[in-house]
C-alpha cells in the first residue's frame, strides 16, 4: 500500500532552528562524493525499471561508464589531490572485487567509502525485508574485507528505495543516509529504532544531474558550483551549511569537463572558513554537537503544534 507522505522527517523551516556550528568556526562543511560505480553489461532485469532503457547489451552506455573507471577516476584523483580534498566514495561495492586498483588508490588517500549498493544496475525496488537486509550486510562485509573500513553511510543504488530502507540502515548502525534532498543541513530522520540522519548529498550540484539531466555545459556547471558555494558560505556565517559535490568519473573525468571542476574547487577552497570533511566526519560532529538539541527542538515544535 502506498502513502502520500513518507514521514521521513519533521517539518522545520531552516530559519527557525538552533544555530549549527562546524569545527574551527567553519561556515560550510564541504564534502566531495565521487560515485565509483559498476554497471553490469547483462544485469538481471528489474520488472519495475529496466537497468538499460535501450536494451542490453547497451555497448555505448556500458562503455561510457567503464571509461569512468579506466580513465576518468584517475583524473579526479589528481584534481582532488591538488586541492587537498578527500573523497567520500559512493561505492557500488562489487567494484572491490572487479577493480581493486581503484579501491587501493582511494584507501591510500585516506578516502572514506559508503555504500551505493552492489551494482548500479541492481535496484532495491521490490525486495523483501530479508533481501534488502542481505544487501546492506553484504555492503558492510565487502567493504570491511577489502579496506578495513566499517562503512557508515548509504546512498541507494540509482536512488532506488523501499519504504523500509531507512529503518534497516538504523537497525544496522549506519550513521547517515544520502537519499534525501530536502535540506542544506544534516537532519534527524524518523526511525523507530536507533537513530539516523540525512546528510545533504545533492542533485543540484551533482554532475550526473547537471550534465545528464539538465544538459548543462561545463562552464555552466562551474558557475553552478561557484554560485552554490557563495550563497551557502554567506548563509553559513549565521548558521552552518553543508555543500556536497557528487561526481561521476565518466562525466567530470572527461578531458573537456575537467577544467570546470578544477576551477570551481580552486574558488571554493580559496575561502578560509571551509571545512574539508568526509561524510562520517560531518555525521560524527553532528551527533556529538547538534543531534540532541535538534531532536529536543523538534519535540518542542511538535508539542506546540499539537496544543494549537
Amino acid at each position: 500500500m502506498s502513502v502520500s507522505d513518507p514521514g521521513l522527517y519533521d517539518y522545520s523551516p531552516i530559519v527557525d532552528r538552533p544555530r549549527l556550528t562546524w569545527p574551527a568556526g567553519a561556515r560550510v562543511a564541504l564534502w566531495i562524493a565521487p560515485n565509483i560505480e559498476f554497471y553490469e553489461l547483462l544485469p538481471p532485469v528489474n520488472p519495475v525499471r529496466p537497468p538499460w532503457p535501450r536494451g542490453q547489451p547497451d555497448v555505448l552506455g556500458y562503455a561510457l561508464r567503464d571509461y569512468g573507471n579506466r580513465v576518468g577516476i584517475w583524473r579526479l584523483f589528481e584534481v582532488l589531490d591538488r586541492h587537498r580534498l578527500r573523497g567520500s566514495v559512493s561505492l557500488n561495492v562489487a567494484l572491490c572485487e572487479h577493480h581493486p586498483e581503484i579501491i587501493e588508490a582511494c584507501r591510500a588517500r585516506g578516502w572514506e567509502f559508503f555504500s551505493h549498493g552492489v551494482y548500479n544496475t541492481r535496484y532495491l525496488y521490490g525486495m523483501d525485508e530479508a533481501q534488502e537486509r542481505a544487501v546492506i550486510d553484504d555492503a558492510v562485509a565487502t567493504v570491511l574485507r577489502h579496506t578495513g573500513q566499517r562503512i557508515a553511510g548509504w546512498l541507494s543504488p540509482a536512488l532506488s528505495h523501499t519504504e523500509r530502507t531507512t529503518e534497516l540502515l538504523a537497525e544496522r548502525g549506519f550513521k547517515y543516509a544520502c537519499d534525501f534532498f530536502h535540506d542544506d543541513q544534516p537532519f534527524p530522520l524518523n526511525v523507530t529504532r536507533g537513530r539516523l540522519i540525512s546528510l545533504p548529498y545533492a542533485l543540484e550540484t551533482n554532475d550526473g544531474t547537471v550534465y545528464g539531466r539538465r544538459l548543462a555545459s561545463p562552464r555552466e556547471y562551474e558557475d553552478i558550483l561557484r554560485a552554490q558555494f557563495d550563497q551557502l558560505y554567506a548563509e553559513g556565517e549565521e548558521s552552518g551549511r553543508v555543500m556536497c559535490i557528487p561526481l561521476h568519473p565518466f562525466l567530470s573525468g572527461q578531458p573537456h569537463r575537467l577544467g570546470a571542476l578544477d576551477r570551481a574547487l580552486a574558488h571554493i577552497v580559496g575561502h578560509p572558513y571551509v571545512w574539508r570533511a568526509t561524510g562520517s566526519e560531518i555525521a560524527d560532529w553532528y551527533y556529538a554537537e547538534h543531534y540532541d538539541a535538534m531532536v529536543a527542538h523538534l519535540a518542542a515544535r511538535r508539542g506546540a503544534s499539537s496544543v494549537a
Binding site: 521521513l8 523551516p13 532506488s160 534525501f180 530536502h182 542533485l203
Partner: peptide
C-alpha cells in the same frame, strides 16, 4: 518521475517549503 517510493523527487520538491521559500 521515478518508481515508488520516489524519495529523490519528493524530498527535492519539499526543499522549497523548508529552505527555498525563505531565500
Amino acid at each position: 518521475d521515478a518508481p515508488y517510493p520516489d524519495y529523490r523527487a519528493y524530498t527535492h520538491r519539499d526543499y522549497g517549503s523548508r529552505v527555498g521559500i525563505f531565500r
